[in-house]
């Protein structure tokens, strides 16, 4: 946990309203600082003020246990101080990585109102691009709102490798960013099970107005103990890499090397959820990666290669050739 600084306290101070009380642990959690340090810092704040530093000149703050009471008008602080350039940069970069560019309405309004007047989000984009996946900002907003308020969302989703969009009602519980993409983990009412969806494969998301009860808080069981968990499919395929150097675990999450063939090929066990997903990845390796088992994935690769050939190149021969293998 980072050391509490003057900047944190000034930021907290600027957000307090007169004649209100706050739970100190909630403030600490919301800005990610240590609660003990925060309480000490707030006690120090309560001794600050303006000359002659009489009782009426100090900040009207009172710390009692976990409560912070604001016992009067706060002098001189007219609301939140604008974001400094590094703070605005950090916020703009975070928004960028959530799919909001400098031109998006949210980024523009927020930074215009809150950031130091010298900050220009477009200038930042010319030097730093933290952009990850290209999902729609509207979808991200709806999912964020839904996870925060336990709201049911209706999504139009296209599974990797599938042609058809499916409409699903989901109960989203978590949003993750990993390696350039955002994912939402939710109870899917259509599948009647937990599912993780890639946000950039969701064409639209809208709140239905219904709230849901959390079905589990046993996050390990849901597969939420870590983002990588979702790659652990129930089934495993055995793949042969003709060129051992072409295999990287980063490209095949959760894969493990099981052996080496006599000709130097690498044998790898790869977990998978849907045969379509793994078949598409194998087909795109154009024969340098071959599925040895199970048969359902082998068949999926053949079907996909044949169908893609017809789709990508209408009129091209669809018969598998024997002279190229």
């Amino acid at each position: 946990m980072p050391e509490l600084g003057v900047r944190d306290l000034m930021a907290v101070l600027a957000r307090l309203s007169p004649w209100c009380f706050y739970e100190i642990d909630e403030i600490a959690r919301s800005i990610g600082v240590d609660v003990v340090q925060l309480r000490e810092g707030l006690e120090t704040l309560s001794t600050c003020g303006v000359a002659p530093y009489g009782p009426g000149d100090c900040l009207p703050l009172l710390v009692q246990g976990n409560r912070l009471y604001v016992t009067g008008e706060l002098p001189g602080v007219n609301g939140p101080v604008r974001l400094s350039a590094p703070e605005a940069r950090a916020l703009a970069a975070a928004l960028q990585s959530a799919g909001f560019s400098a031109e998006d309405n949210l980024t523009r309004r927020l930074l215009q109102a809150a950031a130091t007047v010298t900050f220009d989000a477009k200038d930042l984009e010319r030097t730093v691009r933290a952009t990850t996946s290209g999902h729609s900002p509207d979808v991200f907003e709806a999912l964020s709102q839904a996870t925060a308020t336990a709201a049911v969302v209706r999504i139009l989703y296209t599974r990797a490798g599938a042609t058809e969009m499916t409409e699903r009602e989901i109960e989203p519980v978590a949003l993750y960013a990993e390696r350039g993409a955002w994912y939402v983990t939710a109870w899917c009412r259509r599948a009647d099970d937990w599912r993780t969806f890639r946000v950039d494969r969701i064409a639209s998301a809208g709140l239905t107005g219904e709230r849901f009860e959390m079905r589990s808080t046993d996050w390990d069981a849901v597969g939420l103990s870590g983002p990588s968990e979702r790659f652990t499919g129930a089934r495993t395929a055995t793949l042969r890499f003709r060129d051992p150097v072409a295999f990287s675990e980063r490209d095949w999450p959760g894969a493990s090397i099981s052996g080496e063939d006599q000709d130097g090929s690498l044998l790898v066990e790869v977990p998978y959820g849907s045969p379509d997903w793994i078949a598409r990845r194998v087909a795109s390796r154009f024969g340098t990666v071959v599925v040895l088992a199970p048969q359902e994935v082998r068949a999926a690769v053949t079907a996909l290669a044949t169908a893609t050939l017809a789709e990508v190149l209408p009129g091209a021969g669809t018969e598998p050739s024997t002279d190229l293998g």
């Binding site: 957000r15 604008r82 974001l83 703070e87």
Partner: peptide, 29 residues
């Protein structure tokens, strides 16, 4: 994410209001 400490301060300034924090995490690299 290289700007976490500045982001924390930005968040404190613009959105520190209490409320449920979603379950979320990131590992962009």
């Amino acid at each position: 994410f290289p700007y976490a400490s500045d982001l924390r301060l930005a968040l404190a300034k613009v959105a520190a209001a209490s409320g449920r924090v979603s379950r979320t995490s990131a590992l962009i690299a």
